[in-house]
């Protein structure tokens, strides 16, 4: 008897609550047009909620676009900008052309050549490992390969090269959101323009030598040869870190002359031409 009453009361209250929600959805005025429009725009977005566009999430970006279409034209979604088909669909829907932007990609400034000097058995995150004397590698500025960047990467572009113990970026899937840059306690990843043909794979900061620690056999020896053999302005020197900075100009001689072969080529080097993303025109 008691069980019947219990079941009846619970199910009838549940039914009544459901009914009330249904009635409320019918009686209340229709959803505001801007929200409905934002929901339609969101259908075209990748839905990664990475925040690279400057808005807190895909829905907030969709709301901003629904409010003012020029938001999309001026700051296209960086993920969508790499997908020409998806870009075209949203451009057709909004009836405008987005500005051509050169996206950004992450690179890791480390070769992984530094070996461990102690056996680290603590918490397996880079953030924890760096709390103790800048990590367990001989080079205090090196990649610890414990994968803090891998865990934050929204697209899985980051991975650990198990052979060399270093984080590597897959430029095909990297969306340039910069989450790895903030996650890395060593400050190794950096966002560079997607048409930069080369970067230096070393982060050894010679002006901040730590006693008893040294750079790996692959590391930059700060000889400035890359700066000397390249044309004016192609390579600048980061005085603070004592490392070269490479720009869009391709520096073949510098790559050749580098005594440590620490200048790495990017995807843009092989393609030779500038990788322009965000354009609706089919470049072929």
């Amino acid at each position: 008897m008691n069980a019947t009453i219990t079941v009846t009361i619970l199910s009838s209250i549940g039914f009544f609550a459901g009914l009330m929600i249904y009635v409320a959805s019918k009686v209340l005025p229709k959803e505001d047009e801007s929200l409905a429009e934002a929901a339609r725009v969101k259908e075209f977005l990748p839905g990664a909620d990475c925040g690279a566009c400057g808005y807190p999430g895909c829905f907030a970006y969709a709301q901003a676009v629904a409010h003012d279409k020029q938001v999309f034209a001026k700051t296209p979604c960086p993920i969508l900008a790499q997908d020409k088909g998806g870009m075209k669909k949203l451009e057709d829907y909004l009836g405008l052309q987005a500005e051509v932007i050169v996206g950004k990609k992450a690179v890791v400034h480390c070769t992984g050549g530094s070996h461990s000097i102690v056996e680290y058995t603590g918490l397996q995150t880079c953030a924890a490992a760096t709390q103790l004397a800048s990590g367990f590698n001989e080079c205090p500025y090196s990649c610890l390969a414990l994968g803090d960047c891998v865990r934050v990467c929204p697209t899985g572009a980051m991975s650990i090269d198990q052979e060399h113990h270093v984080a590597v970026v897959d430029w095909e899937t990297c969306i340039g959101c910069g989450l790895c840059v903030t996650a890395c306690p060593q400050g190794l990843p950096e966002l560079i323009p997607a048409n930069t043909p080369q970067y230096v794979a070393c982060n050894y900061q010679a002006k901040r030598d730590i006693p008893g620690r040294k750079r790996c056999p692959d590391g930059c020896i700060h000889c400035h040869i890359c700066e000397k053999v390249s044309e004016e302005g192609a390579v600048t020197w980061d005085e603070k870190k004592d490392l070269p900075i490479f720009h869009v100009t391709q520096v073949d001689t510098a790559i050749e002359k580098c005594p440590r072969h620490v200048i790495r080529k990017t995807v843009a080097y092989e393609e030779k031409e500038l990788e322009v993303v965000g354009s609706a025109q089919e470049t072929g």
Binding site: L10, I13, G14, A17, G18, M20, I21, A24, S25, L28, P29, K30, E31, D32, S34, L35
Partner: peptide, 19 residues
């Protein structure tokens, strides 16, 4: 049950009337 459905209705009301 009651609180959950109430919040649903209130959210719907706010969403439809005041963006």
């Amino acid at each position: 049950l009651v609180i959950a459905s109430l919040v649903q209705i209130i959210e719907m009301a706010i969403k439809r009337t005041n963006v």
